[in-house]
Amino acid sequence: MNIFKALSMGKGRLNEENMSAMLGYLLSPRQPHGLGDLFLKRFLSTLNNFGGCNGRFDNVLDTKNPLEAEVLLEEPYSYLGKKWFVDLVIQIYTKGSSLNEKNEVHRIIIENKIHPQSSNFIQLKSEFLAVLEDLKSQQAQNTTDITMVFLTPDITIGPLQSEFSALLDSDLENHRKAWLKWTGDSSIISIIRSVLKDESIGDIDPISDYMRHTLKAFIRHVLDSQEELKNPSTIKSNDPGEIKEFVLARMDDVLYRIEQYDSSTIRVYNLETQENEVALPMLKRINIELQLGLDTHFSSGQPKNTRHLGKEIIRSLKEQGKAESNPST
């Protein structure tokens, strides 16, 4: 039995919050998993090998002392009046000059994407700017290094690339970003496997049978989930295929992504709740509230279906300049 597979069935399915919680549990030296700071150090070592991050964490890895770290889930930050909830925040400290003083030297922000369609291309950049503003408000000098980690499936898809690319090097200045995958080389799964391998040959202290089986079950669940995304033959028959075109629309300060798939299916995805809306009523609402002026019926009087109306709304949002644009500057 795989407990992760059981929990992912029906409405209790594992989502990004659940997966982030499991990852946060492993990353925190304070949790009773029996790994101490081992998983966190291997995570930092993996980031240390990414382009742009080479040697970034040497100052905390080149010591035999246990890492002083705090891991936070769904941490709220504010930027330009909008609240952003960061999936995972890792704050790493070193001892200060006085006995009880400690300095935050690294703040690692993990934006976790389990499903590519949950991508919001303004999110990673907005979260970075929100964290940067928060640090500047707390420190006279910015002495904490920020590293933005974009954690996604091991596939390439347009919206994911757009979100990662929207955070420019000119925005980062001395800070860094890295695109880490759940599977593949130098991934979360490869880190877990390295822990299991070293434990089996005695290179690290033994871990409990329960924790060992939990890690193996988690690996299997992640691999099965990712295979469904990469291999069309394993996807359910009601899957619409790949996104052919999408556009963003904002109503009541909520951002929606209207997606057209290569099968002509139209979906309206709520980027705040990370759920699909009932498409046709939402398309009609977008048409009214954004004053697109589209007729929801054909000349014969027959009502337009979701595919016809969705296609027209995507085109009208672009032509009328009412679509949300990519804030890449």
Results as ranks from 00 to 15, higher is better:
Gln139His: 13
Leu38Phe: 07
Asp198Cys: 01
Phe39Pro: 02
Asn59Ala: 11
Glu111Ser: 10
Ile90Pro: 03
Asp145Thr: 14
Ile266Arg: 04
Ile108Met: 06
Thr63Gly: 05
Glu68Arg: 14
Glu272Ala: 10
Trp84Asp: 04
Ile314Gln: 05
Gln291Val: 12
Asp87Gln: 03
Leu99Phe: 13
His308Val: 15
Asn59Lys: 12
Met19Arg: 11
Gly55Ala: 02
Asp295Gly: 10
Ser119Trp: 08
Asn276Gln: 12
Asn270Gln: 06
Ile192Cys: 00
Cys53His: 04
Gly96Glu: 00
Phe246Gln: 08
Val278Tyr: 09
Ile92Val: 12
Pro66Ala: 05
Ile235Pro: 00
Glu133Ser: 13
Pro303Arg: 07
Arg212Val: 02
Arg176Lys: 14
Gly293Leu: 04
Leu88Asn: 04
His115Glu: 14
Leu168Glu: 13
Gln302Cys: 11
Lys304Cys: 01
Leu292Ala: 11
Glu245Ser: 12
Leu99Gln: 13
Leu292Phe: 08
Ser299Glu: 13
Gln117Asp: 15
Lys82Gln: 15
Leu294Thr: 07
Asp205Leu: 13
Ile191Asp: 01
Glu199Leu: 00
Ser299Val: 14
Leu294Val: 11
His221Pro: 05
Val247Trp: 05
Ser233Leu: 13
Lys41Phe: 02
Lys216Gly: 10
Gly36Phe: 03
Asp209Ser: 14
Leu317Glu: 08
Glu227Val: 00
His213Gly: 00
Ile207Gly: 00
Gln141Asp: 11
Gly81Phe: 06
His175Met: 01
Ile189Tyr: 00
Arg176His: 15
Val247Asn: 03
Leu38Ala: 03
His213Pro: 00
Glu245Arg: 12
Thr273Cys: 00
Ser8His: 15
Met22Glu: 15
Ser299His: 11
Phe298Asp: 11
Asn15Val: 13
Gln123Met: 08
Glu101Thr: 13
Pro116Asp: 09
Ile192Gln: 00
Gly184Met: 03
Glu16Met: 01
Pro116Leu: 09
Leu280Lys: 12
Gln31Cys: 06
Ile313Gly: 06
Glu101His: 11
Thr234Leu: 15
Asp87Met: 07
Cys53Ala: 11
Lys102His: 15
Gly55Gln: 05
Ala178His: 06
Val89Ala: 02
Ile243Asp: 04
Leu14Thr: 07
Pro303His: 02
Thr147Ser: 10
Ser78Cys: 12
Gln139Ser: 12
Gln226Asn: 15
Met282His: 07
Gln141Pro: 00
Ile243Lys: 04
Pro159Ile: 09
Gly241Met: 02
Met148Asp: 04
Ile155Val: 14
Gln320Tyr: 05
Lys197Cys: 02
Ala166Ser: 14
Glu242Ala: 09
Ser162His: 05
Pro303Thr: 07
Ser170Cys: 03
Gly34Asn: 09
Arg220Gln: 15
Gly34Ile: 09
Gln226Ile: 13
Ser170Phe: 03
Glu319Val: 12
Gly24Asp: 06
Thr63Asp: 10
Phe218Gly: 03
His175Pro: 03
Lys230Glu: 12
Leu280Pro: 07
Leu223Phe: 05
Leu135Val: 08
Leu172Phe: 09
Ile90Gln: 07
